Computed example of a mutant assay.
Amino acid sequence: MCRGLAFLPAVCLERAKDLKTLFRSFIHRADSQKPEKLSVPTSEESMKLRESFENLLANKHGLAAFRTFLMSEFSEENIAFYLACEDYKSTKSPSKLVAKANKIYEEFIRTDAPREVNIDHETKAITKKNLERPTVSSFCLAQNKIFTLMEKDCYPRFLRSAAYQEMAGCLTSKVTK
Protein backbone atom coordinates (compact mmCIF):
# COMPACT_ATOMS: atom_id res chain seq x y z
CA MET A 1 0.00 0.00 0.00
CA CYS A 2 1.46 3.33 -1.09
CA ARG A 3 0.97 6.08 1.45
CA GLY A 4 2.72 8.81 -0.57
CA LEU A 5 5.41 11.20 0.55
CA ALA A 6 3.33 12.82 3.28
CA PHE A 7 4.33 10.09 5.72
CA LEU A 8 8.07 10.69 5.35
CA PRO A 9 9.76 12.92 7.90
CA ALA A 10 10.41 16.49 6.68
CA VAL A 11 14.16 15.92 7.00
CA CYS A 12 13.96 13.03 4.51
CA LEU A 13 11.94 15.09 2.07
CA GLU A 14 14.41 17.97 2.28
CA ARG A 15 17.37 15.62 1.76
CA ALA A 16 15.63 14.01 -1.23
CA LYS A 17 15.04 17.47 -2.70
CA ASP A 18 18.74 18.34 -2.21
CA LEU A 19 19.81 15.09 -3.88
CA LYS A 20 17.48 15.71 -6.81
CA THR A 21 19.00 19.17 -7.28
CA LEU A 22 22.52 17.76 -7.03
CA PHE A 23 21.83 15.04 -9.61
CA ARG A 24 20.27 17.60 -11.94
CA SER A 25 23.42 19.72 -11.69
CA PHE A 26 25.60 16.70 -12.54
CA ILE A 27 23.49 15.97 -15.60
CA HIS A 28 23.53 19.66 -16.60
CA ARG A 29 27.30 19.84 -16.13
CA ALA A 30 27.88 16.63 -18.12
CA ASP A 31 25.74 17.97 -20.97
CA SER A 32 27.43 21.37 -20.95
CA GLN A 33 30.91 19.86 -20.93
CA LYS A 34 30.60 18.16 -24.30
CA PRO A 35 33.23 19.91 -26.42
CA GLU A 36 31.89 22.12 -29.14
CA LYS A 37 33.05 21.45 -32.67
CA LEU A 38 35.75 24.01 -33.28
CA SER A 39 35.53 26.07 -36.40
CA VAL A 40 38.60 27.79 -37.72
CA PRO A 41 38.70 31.58 -37.86
CA THR A 42 40.23 33.42 -40.81
CA SER A 43 43.84 34.52 -40.48
CA GLU A 44 42.67 38.11 -39.90
CA GLU A 45 40.32 36.93 -37.13
CA SER A 46 43.10 34.88 -35.58
CA MET A 47 45.39 37.90 -35.37
CA LYS A 48 42.62 39.87 -33.61
CA LEU A 49 42.17 37.06 -31.07
CA ARG A 50 45.73 37.68 -29.86
CA GLU A 51 45.23 41.45 -29.61
CA SER A 52 42.86 41.42 -26.65
CA PHE A 53 40.60 39.29 -24.52
CA GLU A 54 37.64 41.44 -25.60
CA ASN A 55 38.33 40.55 -29.24
CA LEU A 56 38.39 36.87 -28.31
CA LEU A 57 35.03 37.12 -26.53
CA ALA A 58 33.50 39.02 -29.45
CA ASN A 59 34.55 36.38 -32.00
CA LYS A 60 32.39 33.25 -32.26
CA HIS A 61 35.36 31.07 -33.31
CA GLY A 62 37.58 32.44 -30.57
CA LEU A 63 34.87 32.10 -27.93
CA ALA A 64 34.18 28.48 -28.94
CA ALA A 65 37.89 27.64 -28.81
CA PHE A 66 38.33 29.41 -25.46
CA ARG A 67 35.30 27.64 -23.98
CA THR A 68 36.67 24.28 -25.11
CA PHE A 69 40.03 25.17 -23.55
CA LEU A 70 38.35 26.07 -20.24
CA MET A 71 36.46 22.77 -20.32
CA SER A 72 39.77 20.94 -20.66
CA GLU A 73 40.94 22.79 -17.54
CA PHE A 74 37.68 22.13 -15.65
CA SER A 75 36.99 25.85 -15.30
CA GLU A 76 34.23 26.30 -17.87
CA GLU A 77 31.99 27.79 -15.17
CA ASN A 78 33.87 31.10 -15.54
CA ILE A 79 32.87 31.70 -19.15
CA ALA A 80 29.40 30.24 -18.52
CA PHE A 81 28.89 32.73 -15.68
CA TYR A 82 30.23 35.63 -17.74
CA LEU A 83 27.89 34.80 -20.64
CA ALA A 84 24.92 34.29 -18.30
CA CYS A 85 25.56 37.79 -16.92
CA GLU A 86 25.70 39.22 -20.45
CA ASP A 87 22.35 37.60 -21.20
CA TYR A 88 20.98 38.84 -17.85
CA LYS A 89 21.95 42.45 -18.66
CA SER A 90 19.91 42.32 -21.85
CA THR A 91 16.72 41.24 -20.03
CA LYS A 92 13.92 43.79 -20.30
CA SER A 93 11.10 42.28 -18.24
CA PRO A 94 11.36 42.93 -14.46
CA SER A 95 9.80 39.56 -13.64
CA LYS A 96 12.27 37.75 -15.91
CA LEU A 97 15.08 39.77 -14.33
CA VAL A 98 14.19 38.40 -10.89
CA ALA A 99 13.92 34.81 -12.17
CA LYS A 100 17.22 35.01 -14.07
CA ALA A 101 18.97 36.66 -11.12
CA ASN A 102 17.91 33.85 -8.81
CA LYS A 103 18.95 31.21 -11.34
CA ILE A 104 22.40 32.77 -11.82
CA TYR A 105 22.87 33.13 -8.07
CA GLU A 106 21.87 29.51 -7.41
CA GLU A 107 24.00 28.11 -10.22
CA PHE A 108 27.16 30.21 -9.87
CA ILE A 109 27.35 32.36 -6.71
CA ARG A 110 25.89 30.68 -3.64
CA THR A 111 28.26 28.60 -1.54
CA ASP A 112 28.37 25.04 -2.88
CA ALA A 113 26.56 26.06 -6.08
CA PRO A 114 26.80 23.40 -8.80
CA ARG A 115 29.07 25.64 -10.93
CA GLU A 116 30.36 27.98 -8.24
CA VAL A 117 32.75 30.63 -9.53
CA ASN A 118 35.77 31.68 -7.53
CA ILE A 119 34.98 35.11 -6.10
CA ASP A 120 35.93 36.59 -2.76
CA HIS A 121 33.57 36.67 0.23
CA GLU A 122 32.97 40.42 -0.02
CA THR A 123 31.97 40.25 -3.70
CA LYS A 124 29.68 37.32 -2.93
CA ALA A 125 28.02 39.28 -0.09
CA ILE A 126 27.56 42.40 -2.23
CA THR A 127 26.07 40.33 -5.05
CA LYS A 128 23.67 38.60 -2.66
CA LYS A 129 22.62 42.01 -1.28
CA ASN A 130 22.07 43.29 -4.84
CA LEU A 131 19.55 40.51 -5.41
CA GLU A 132 17.17 41.93 -2.82
CA ARG A 133 16.16 44.35 -5.60
CA PRO A 134 17.61 42.99 -8.83
CA THR A 135 18.67 45.44 -11.52
CA VAL A 136 20.62 44.86 -14.73
CA SER A 137 23.79 45.75 -12.82
CA SER A 138 23.26 43.30 -9.93
CA PHE A 139 26.06 40.98 -11.09
CA CYS A 140 28.45 43.60 -12.49
CA LEU A 141 30.97 43.41 -9.66
CA ALA A 142 31.13 39.59 -9.72
CA GLN A 143 31.18 39.53 -13.52
CA ASN A 144 34.06 42.02 -13.60
CA LYS A 145 36.04 39.90 -11.12
CA ILE A 146 35.56 36.79 -13.29
CA PHE A 147 36.38 38.75 -16.45
CA THR A 148 39.63 39.95 -14.88
CA LEU A 149 40.46 36.44 -13.68
CA MET A 150 39.97 35.04 -17.18
CA GLU A 151 41.80 37.93 -18.85
CA LYS A 152 44.85 37.79 -16.57
CA ASP A 153 45.03 34.02 -15.99
CA CYS A 154 43.06 31.87 -18.45
CA TYR A 155 43.51 33.95 -21.61
CA PRO A 156 47.34 33.96 -21.56
CA ARG A 157 47.32 30.20 -20.90
CA PHE A 158 44.88 29.74 -23.77
CA LEU A 159 47.19 31.64 -26.13
CA ARG A 160 50.05 29.31 -25.09
CA SER A 161 47.88 26.17 -25.30
CA ALA A 162 48.35 23.44 -27.85
CA ALA A 163 44.77 23.97 -29.03
CA TYR A 164 45.36 27.62 -29.88
CA GLN A 165 48.81 26.91 -31.35
CA GLU A 166 47.30 24.19 -33.53
CA MET A 167 44.52 26.51 -34.65
CA ALA A 168 47.03 29.28 -35.42
CA GLY A 169 49.28 26.74 -37.16
CA CYS A 170 46.40 25.64 -39.39
CA LEU A 171 45.94 29.24 -40.41
CA THR A 172 49.59 29.91 -41.21
CA SER A 173 49.85 26.69 -43.22
CA LYS A 174 46.72 27.71 -45.20
CA VAL A 175 48.23 31.15 -45.85
CA THR A 176 51.59 29.78 -47.02
CA LYS A 177 50.09 27.15 -49.38
Rank of each mutant, 00 (worst) to 15 (best):
F23D: 13
A125P: 02
R3S: 04
Y105D: 01
T172P: 02
E107F: 03
Y105P: 05
K89I: 02
R3I: 08
F158M: 07
F66L: 08
F53I: 06
C140Y: 12
A99G: 06
S173T: 12
L63H: 04
Y88Q: 01
K96A: 08
L49M: 09
F74T: 03
L19P: 01
A168Q: 12
V11A: 13
A162N: 11
A16T: 12
K152L: 09
Q33S: 01
K17P: 00
E122V: 09
L149V: 08
E151R: 15
M167I: 15
E86R: 00
E14W: 07
S90T: 10
K34L: 04
C140A: 12
R115K: 09
A142E: 07
P35T: 05
A142N: 06
L8T: 11
K128R: 14
L83C: 12
L70V: 01
L149E: 08
H61Y: 15
E77N: 06
E51W: 14
P9H: 10
S93I: 12
R50P: 01
V136G: 14
P114G: 15
V117Q: 03
K89W: 12
S72H: 05
C2W: 15
S46C: 14
C140V: 12
S32A: 08
M1E: 15
V175Q: 15
S161Y: 13
E45T: 08
C154K: 11
F7W: 12
S137P: 00
I27F: 11
K174F: 12
S25F: 12
L171D: 07
H28G: 04
